[in-house]
């Protein structure tokens, strides 16, 4: 059973997310969204939010801003989520308290994910105030899917190594490059030896497709959602098992 102290600690974890993890990508997203809306309102761009064209443009602004905010915030949030405490020695203070290590980091992961989803909704709502009706629920679902995949994979890497951030970027880039190559040239498939590697790499293409659909106000598609959520969940479970077994200091 989780102790009440651990649950109460969630407010500190939420504060850490806001101050240390989300501030830079939020400023970037607000800058991009704000600049576009400002330019439109000053007549630099021929945008009338009430028309179909205006609504489509508003969704493009949303996509541009959130395509920066979600991946960047998710990466920053999950980077060093557990490896940082091991590296800096914080584990000696945190885990001499009556706290289960996997529970502590799972709670951190959940709080960060929840904050990301809430911020995604808040940002969309803010943009809506200056433009037109936007898919708030879709933006929040996109945030949740991004966190499931980026956050889940980052959580796993962080339990294994202090180089988790670099490995996460590498895995993500490799996945994007290989999957894009396969998609662009279906007539010449990838070499057979690469296929098992591609299969275990994160389904970045599925996430991109789901997010694009969601920003446009459509459904993400159950296939993409299941793939992304299943992959992220598997990483999370594996990471939790590793946290249960591994030494806290080396």
């Amino acid at each position: 059973m989780m102790r009440s102290g651990m649950l109460r600690y969630a407010r500190y974890q939420a504060g850490d997310f806001l101050l240390q993890k989300a501030s830079v990508p939020a400023v970037l997203a607000l800058f991009i969204g704000g600049m576009t809306v400002y330019m439109a309102s000053r007549g630099f761009m021929p945008l009338d939010w009430s028309t179909d064209m205006g609504a489509a443009n508003a969704r493009t602004v949303l996509k541009q801003a959130l395509d920066i905010f979600f991946p960047l915030a998710a990466f920053l949030a999950v980077n060093s989520i557990s490896s940082g405490d091991r590296q800096h020695g914080h584990v000696r203070f945190l885990f001499s308290k009556p706290v289960a290590v996997p529970a502590y980091y799972l709670q951190t992961w959940l709080v960060y994910g929840g904050m990301l989803v809430a911020l995604g909704g808040a940002f969309t709502l803010l943009l809506q105030l200056f433009t037109t009706s936007l898919p708030i629920a879709g933006a929040m679902e996109a945030a949740a899917l991004t966190w499931m995949l980026v956050g889940g994979l980052g959580f796993l890497f962080s339990t294994l190594t202090r180089m988790d951030g670099a490995i996460l970027i590498l895995a993500w880039m490799l996945s994007s490059v290989l999957r894009s190559a396969a998609a662009m040239r279906p007539e010449s498939p990838l070499p057979e030896w690469l296929l098992p590697i591609v299969k275990v790499l994160p389904p970045a293409d599925r996430l991109d497709a789901a997010r694009t659909a969601l920003y446009a106000g459509h459904s993400a598609g159950s296939g993409s959602v299941l793939h992304v959520v299943g992959y992220g969940l598997a990483c999370l479970v594996l990471g939790t098992l590793i946290l249960r077994r591994r030494s806290l200091i080396t």
Binding site: R3, G5, R8, H88, G89, R92, F93, S96, K97, P98
Partner: peptide, 30 residues
């Protein structure tokens, strides 16, 4: 049960204030 532990290496996030550190660790200590 928890342990009252003073490590040799004083490693806490340096941007925390004394008050904040004690409140956080008291919360974790249940």
């Amino acid at each position: 049960h928890g342990v009252a532990y003073v490590p040799e290496l004083m490693a806490l996030p340096l941007h925390w204030t004394v008050e904040n550190a004690l409140h956080r660790l008291a919360t974790l200590a249940d």
